[in-house]
């Protein structure tokens, strides 16, 4: 019982802190790639605190509702991950968060929000099936969807599921909205899309979506860690390498359009998944 409470607390408090720090590191690394110094590592926290202190303004009260629901869903998914619950269920719950973020953006009539929301739906459409297939692969290898049993598996999953790890990489890049998949919103607010999905979230509600994003980052890194769960060092290396690659890809690629994304990701992702899954089936 004590253990459960500690895990819930860790999920609710430690996870967003870790997510914020990762975000800070991301910004420093990106800056270095671009020959800048970059902000201090705790800058994301300063940003959120500042946003939280701003005046509340909304275009539609449902946007506030959606921002809270997004945060709640992402937090619940991370807590369930810490409690070592069912992988598929966790995916469903993070999808709830993603959907609420879209509904919130759709509640504004601004074309930037609207287009951003539609593109975000296409992003969800691109990565959702891939994430499901990755969990299916994990299940076929370990015989369980429960994270506890996946962590207890005595062989690194990466060796059996190499292609599915690549597929997970695609899904994560889309989920984190990194280039070339930063269609729905981007880090810079001065492009054709303005801030897309997030254009009309402002002040404290924008802060909520930012905290929600930190939870998502942690969940994603958690998913990566499943692939080398036999030792702490392996886990840290795989997570760090993956995230570093994400940042590199983000910096070296340009934004593509949704047609390319949907076609490329489904074709590549499905092919790689099928090949890897067939290995597992014929065994």
């Amino acid at each position: 019982m004590i253990n459960t409470c500690a895990l819930i607390l860790a999920g609710l408090v430690a996870a967003p802190l870790a997510g914020g720090l990762v975000n800070g590191l991301d910004r420093i690394l990106t800056a270095r790639f671009q020959a800048r110094v970059g902000p201090p590592v705790v800058q994301p926290f300063y940003d959120v605190v500042k946003l939280l202190g701003k005046e509340k303004t909304v275009v539609n009260v449902w946007q506030a509702f959606c921002a809270y629901c997004y945060l709640a869903a992402t937090a619940i998914s991370v807590v369930l991950f810490f409690l070592q619950s069912d992988l598929l269920l966790i995916l469903f719950i993070q999808a709830v968060g993603a959907v609420f973020l879209v509904i919130g953006a759709l509640s504004s009539t601004s074309p930037y929000s609207q287009v951003g929301a539609q593109r975000e739906l296409l992003q969800i459409l691109s990565y959702e099936p891939l994430l499901v297939l990755v969990t299916v692969g994990i299940y076929l290898e370990t015989g369980s969807f429960k994270i506890g049993q996946v962590y207890a598996w005595d062989e690194p999953l990466l060796l059996k599921l190499p292609f599915l790890f690549v597929v997970l990489g695609y899904a994560l890049t889309i989920k984190l909205r990194k280039s070339p998949f930063d269609l729905s919103t981007s880090h810079h607010g001065h492009q054709e899309l303005v801030k897309g999905l997030l254009t009309d979230y402002s002040g404290p509600f924008l802060a909520l979506t930012e905290i929600g994003h930190w939870f998502e980052v942690v969940l994603i890194l958690g998913l990566c860690s499943l692939f080398w769960a036999t030792s702490w060092i392996g886990m840290i290396i795989i997570v760090a390498t993956t995230y570093f690659l994400e940042i590199v890809i983000d910096n070296v690629s340009a934004r593509m359009n949704w047609r390319w994304m949907l076609g490329y990701v489904w074709a590549m992702g499905l092919t790689l998944s099928v090949v890897n899954l067939v290995w597992l089936y014929v065994r």
């Binding site: 303004t57 009260v61 506030a64 509702f65 619940i76 009539t109 254009t199």
Partner: peptide, 22 residues
């Protein structure tokens, strides 16, 4: 979560309503 979000809606109803960004 639903109750909290509804409470947020009630509070946001007092917030300043602004026009969508165009």
């Amino acid at each position: 979560g639903f109750v909290i979000s509804i409470w947020a809606v009630r509070r946001a109803a007092r917030a300043r309503i602004i026009a969508p960004y165009l």
